[in-house]
């Protein structure tokens, strides 16, 4: 039973359902409903992150993940056994110097590469056990990808880029266009639906990429250095956008980065060095002063 108060006449309404208009004065209740829904979501998100209340549901689990490459005669160990648990709805940053294995880990979690040893579970399914078809399905529906170099398809407009994964998922064309417009609107590019990637700035291209990663409502968004090719201010905007999506829709975000701005929004930070987890920090435990950027308050 939820209680709502009419904004115009003060009437108290108690219901388990949805109230669109006040029964007494016919005032619009949509704003009130939305507000309470947002409050509920936030409360749920807080509860999920509270260790003392919940037993966590892990969306990504890796066990002894190893990956080695053969370079000439030598075998180079990029990952030397990573054990990592990522909670549903978490904003996780993977940090580490370049060459530490961030991107390799990212590729393994995303099913873009196969581990030499160990296993990676997403939603309790072992990625290594999937057939090519199931793997494609997983990439299409459960995981959204954001890259450092944006990786939009250059011959397609922003809208077509966003709707491409929906074509693969077999969505109807009307529904697809509508959802594509909605997503581009969400990232603030509602007026640039028919622009090609070359006609957009770096920040705008990355926004399109963010919209595309959300095309099939994935459970996880994987971001590989999403701010690496952007200037400070646009990078900050993209990070804020990601955080907003994380809070609003509860999507799990895993981002490989060495951008310190990310620390501010991450729930946990995993530090990787030489292919091993060095330490995992919780956001509350970090006392890092981040200054203002680019003269902006």
């Amino acid at each position: 039973m939820a209680k709502y108060v009419c904004p115009s006449c003060g009437e108290k309404i108690e219901t388990t359902g949805i109230v669109t208009v006040c029964p007494k004065c016919n005032a619009d209740m949509a704003g009130v409903m939305e507000q309470s829904a947002r409050a509920l979501r936030q409360k749920a998100a807080e509860l999920i992150k509270d260790d003392s209340v919940t037993t966590h549901e892990y969306i990504v689990r890796t066990r002894g993940l190893k990956r080695s490459y053969i370079m000439g005669e030598e075998e180079v160990q990029a990952l030397r056994g990573i054990d990592l648990d990522v909670r549903r709805g978490e904003y996780l940053s993977i940090m580490g110097p370049s060459g530490s294995g961030k991107s390799t880990l990212f590729n393994l979690i995303g099913g873009l590469d196969k581990p030499t040893a160990g296993s990676c579970y997403i939603n309790e399914t072992d990625m290594a056990q999937l057939s090519a078809h199931e793997l494609a399905w997983q990439r299409c529906r459960t995981i959204g990808y954001i890259f450092q170099t944006f990786n939009l398809i250059p011959v397609m407009t922003a809208l077509e880029n966003v709707t491409l994964p929906m074509i693969f998922a077999g969505m109807g064309s009307d529904e697809m266009l509508e959802r594509g417009r909605m997503l581009l609107d969400l990232v603030g590019l509602g007026g640039r639906l028919n622009h090609k990637p070359q006609e957009l700035s770096g920040g705008q291209q990355q926004r399109v990429a963010v919209a595309r990663s959300l095309a099939n409502s994935p459970a996880i968004v994987l971001a590989d250095e999403p701010t690496g090719n952007l200037d400070l201010q646009t990078g900050k905007e993209i990070i804020e956008l990601l955080k907003e999506l994380n809070v609003e829709s509860g999507v799990t975000i895993i981002s490989a980065t060495h951008d310190l701005k990310m620390i501010d929004v991450s729930d946990r930070i995993v530090h990787i060095r030489d292919g091993q987890v060095e330490r995992i920090e919780k956001r509350e435990e970090i006392d890092l002063e981040i200054g203002t950027m680019g003269g902006q308050p």
Binding site: C140, N151, P165
Partner: peptide, 8 residues
Amino acid sequence: TMKCLGAL
């Protein structure tokens, strides 16, 4: 990229 988006 297309493969990442689920292309077979």
